[in-house]
Amino acid sequence: RRRVRAILPYTKVPDTDEISFLKGDMFIVHNELEDGWMWVTNLRTDEQGLIVEDLVEEVG
């Protein structure tokens, strides 16, 4: 499975499927959606939700 790491922190918009995260958080990518969004699991918090790919980098 594809893994990505947050390069910046992010605070979710209330009442959306987004998740908040810290710089350095690792995610497993489940689905890549339109307009650069990804459905992921945050490995630190075990939370699932949407993040935008501009805020993460690939992990080898």
Rank of each mutant, 00 (worst) to 15 (best):
E53Q: 14
I19Y: 01
A6K: 01
T41C: 11
W37H: 08
G60Y: 15
V40Y: 01
Y10C: 04
G36V: 03
W37K: 11
T45C: 02
D46G: 15
P14G: 08
E18V: 05
V59I: 12
F21M: 05
R3W: 15
E34M: 13
R1W: 15
T16H: 03
G24V: 02
E32S: 10
G24E: 05
E47L: 07
E57P: 00
V29M: 03
V59Q: 07
W39L: 08
F27W: 01
D46M: 15
L50T: 10
T16C: 05
R1L: 15
L43H: 04
M26S: 07
L55Q: 10
D25M: 02
M26V: 15
R2H: 07
G24M: 04
L43I: 12
D25S: 01
E34L: 12
S20K: 02
V4G: 02
E57G: 05
D17K: 13
V59L: 12
R3D: 04
D15I: 05
D15R: 08
V13M: 13
M38H: 03
K12V: 03
D17I: 08
G36N: 07
N42I: 03
R1E: 14
Y10E: 01
F21S: 01
W37T: 09
F21H: 02
V52P: 14
L55H: 13
D17Q: 14
R3S: 08
I7F: 07
T41F: 06
L55S: 08
E18P: 02
L8R: 13
D25H: 02
T16A: 03
G49T: 01
V52C: 14
D46S: 15
V59M: 12
D15C: 13
R5E: 04
E18Y: 04
T11W: 08
K23Q: 11
Q48K: 12
D35F: 12
L43Y: 06
G60I: 14
E47D: 10
M38K: 04
Q48H: 12
N42L: 14
E58S: 10
Y10V: 02
T16K: 04
R44W: 03
G36K: 08
T41L: 11
T41M: 07
D54F: 14
R1M: 15
G36I: 03
E34Y: 12
K12E: 04
W37D: 03
R1I: 15
E57M: 09
H30Q: 08
V56E: 00
S20F: 02
M26P: 04
R3P: 05
H30W: 15
E58Y: 08
R1T: 14
K12G: 10
E58P: 11
M38R: 04
M26D: 07
T11D: 10
R3I: 14
V4P: 02
R3N: 08
V13L: 12
P9S: 14
L50K: 15
T45N: 13
E47I: 06
G49N: 00
V29T: 03
G36T: 04
S20R: 02
T11P: 03
F21Y: 08
I51K: 00
F27H: 02
G49A: 01
I28D: 13
T11A: 08
K12M: 06
L33P: 09
I7C: 08
M38E: 01
E32C: 12
P14V: 09
R44F: 05
R5K: 10
V4T: 04
Q48L: 08
D46W: 15
W37P: 02
L50F: 09
I28M: 10
V13F: 10
T41H: 10
V29Y: 02
I19T: 02
P9C: 13
L55M: 14
D25K: 01
V4L: 10
E58C: 08
L55W: 11
E18H: 05
L55R: 09
E58G: 08
T11R: 09
M38C: 05
N42E: 01
I51M: 04
R5D: 01
T45I: 02
P14H: 08
G49L: 01
F21R: 00
D17E: 13
V13H: 13
A6D: 00
S20M: 02
V40P: 00
D17S: 13
L22P: 02
L8H: 12
V13R: 14
K12F: 03
V13S: 14
E34F: 12
M38L: 14
G60M: 13
E58W: 09
L33C: 12
W39Q: 05
V4H: 02
P9I: 05
V40N: 00
I28C: 09
L43A: 06
M38V: 06
V4N: 01
F27C: 02
S20Y: 02
T41Y: 11
A6E: 00
M26W: 09
D54I: 10
N31V: 14
E58N: 12
V4C: 08
V59G: 06
W37Q: 08
F27Y: 00
V52T: 12
I28Y: 08
R44I: 04
T11Y: 07
I19A: 02
F21E: 00
E57T: 09
V52R: 15
E53G: 13
L55C: 09
D15F: 13
L43D: 04
L43K: 05
L43E: 11
D35Y: 12
R3G: 05
D15M: 11
W39I: 06
R2Y: 07
R44M: 07
L33V: 10
V56D: 01
I28K: 06
V29A: 02
E18G: 05
D25R: 01
G36E: 03
L22R: 10
W37Y: 12
I19W: 01
I7Q: 06
D54Q: 11
E18K: 04
E32D: 12
Y10W: 07
G36Y: 04
P14K: 10
I51A: 05
T41K: 07
I7Y: 06
D54H: 12
L50C: 11
R44Q: 05
K23P: 09
L50P: 04
T11K: 09
G60K: 14
V40W: 00
P14M: 09
I51S: 01
D46N: 15
R1V: 15
M26K: 06
V56N: 01
T16L: 03
M26E: 12
E53W: 15
K23M: 11
V59Y: 11
V29E: 01
L8W: 12
R1Q: 14
D46I: 12
P14L: 08
N42V: 02
F21Q: 00
D15E: 11
D46A: 15
L55V: 06
D25W: 03
F27E: 00
V13W: 09
R3C: 14
E47Q: 11
P14C: 08
